[in-house]
């Protein structure tokens, strides 16, 4: 077995029209993923049956049952196909599917989701951008903070000021600050 790992990008899919995956071998984790799909489809089919059963062709559960049935059948076929394939020898789950960087960024996103409401949009996003740019780029703190906060400011201006999207304020009373500036301009005009 060749232990020197060569990363082959063709498995990842460059665009949606060229999906990844291997045609003749099974990628690590593929079998488990397919099993999850089968279980999930079965569960949804059961749920869909519970909506209105076989009450009427026009029932609210008719199309959900039909589609979840298609999901289940196709997932079962895919499971058989996946089970017949040989596991590929030159890929491992932790390297090719979920390398450390992906796990770290995914963890960042989870933390972001948890902090968004209590802390508010601006501090959470600043932390997220600075931390992830630092980890990915490994450049100086000066670069990291300038790029991170600069782009955050731009996004904030577009969404908050131009499009009036009321993002969670959290600990910074940004709505009051904006109003203050509005009054200032209104007073000056």
């Amino acid at each position: 077995m060749n232990h020197e790992h060569v990363h082959d990008e063709s498995h990842e899919g460059h665009a949606d029209a060229q999906p990844g995956g291997l045609a003749s071998e099974r990628r690590p984790g593929e079998l488990a993923f397919t099993i999850v799909l089968v279980a999930f489809s079965g569960f949804l089919l059961w749920e869909a049956y519970g909506i209105s059963g076989f009450e009427a062709l026009s029932g609210p559960g008719a199309i959900p049952m039909a589609t979840t049935f298609v999901m289940l059948v196709s997932a079962v076929i895919l499971l058989f196909k996946a089970a017949r394939l040989k596991l590929t020898a030159d890929e491992t789950f932790m390297v090719d599917i979920t390398p450390p960087l992906v796990l770290v960024l995914a963890a960042f996103l989870v933390v972001y989701g948890l902090l968004l409401k209590p802390l508010g949009f601006l501090p959470t996003s600043a932390l997220f951008l600075v931390a992830s740019i630092k980890i990915l780029a490994r450049r100086s703190w000066g670069f990291t903070i300038t790029v991170g906060l600069g782009s955050l400011l731009l996004i904030y201006l577009i969404f908050r000021i131009v499009f009036s999207v009321l993002i969670p304020a959290g600990i910074i009373p940004e709505a009051e600050i904006i109003q203050f500036f509005r009054n200032l301009f209104a007073g000056g005009a």
Binding site: S164, L166, P173, A175, E176, I178, Q179
Partner: peptide
Amino acid sequence: AQDYPTKEIQ
């Protein structure tokens, strides 16, 4: 109430 509104009302 006197100051209201001090920020945008949604």
